[in-house]
């Protein structure tokens, strides 16, 4: 057996975004998990080991920043990416508090998405 694939967790309330992200990453050699909300994602994280989290910011219920901050509080060292339409509007201290590795704009550029994920996983 070859090495297990890196596991990437995608979180967004918009299922068409999850679908488009998975489509972009299909050839990247990851195992992809998806969650439609922060709660669902936290549930998944309690069951599975993941190597990278990509989360949307604006979701009903818990927002991306709050979700990732909770992950950070749980002591996780998993690299994490925040996907947002308004990256400039997120205050720097909150980014630090949530342990965010990189911000990705929405809509994203396909090549940028792939390279950002690769470099986050290489850490």
């Amino acid at each position: 057996m070859s090495e297990p694939l890196p596991v990437v967790l995608l979180v967004d309330d918009e299922k068409h975004i999850l679908s488009a992200l998975s489509r972009s990453l299909r050839r990247e050699g990851y195992e992809i998990l998806t969650a439609g909300s922060a709660d669902e994602a936290l549930q998944l994280l309690s069951e599975r080991q993941v190597d990278l989290i990509v989360s949307d910011q604006k979701m009903p219920g818990t927002h991306g920043i709050a979700f990732l901050t909770e992950v950070e509080r749980g002591g996780s060292r998993v690299p994490r990416i925040l996907l947002t339409g308004w990256p400039e509007e997120i205050p720097q201290p909150e980014i630090a508090r949530a342990g965010i590795t990189a911000l990705l704009p929405k809509p994203w550029d396909d090549a940028e998405l792939k390279s950002t994920l690769r470099s986050c996983l290489a850490r």
Binding site: E14, H16, I17, S19, A20, L21, R23, S24, G85, K106, P107, W108, D110, L113
Partner: peptide
């Protein structure tokens, strides 16, 4: 949001 996935889908 729709712009996001339409754009990604078109590249794909």
């Amino acid at each position: 949001n729709p712009m996001g996935f339409i754009h990604a889908n078109l590249s794909q």
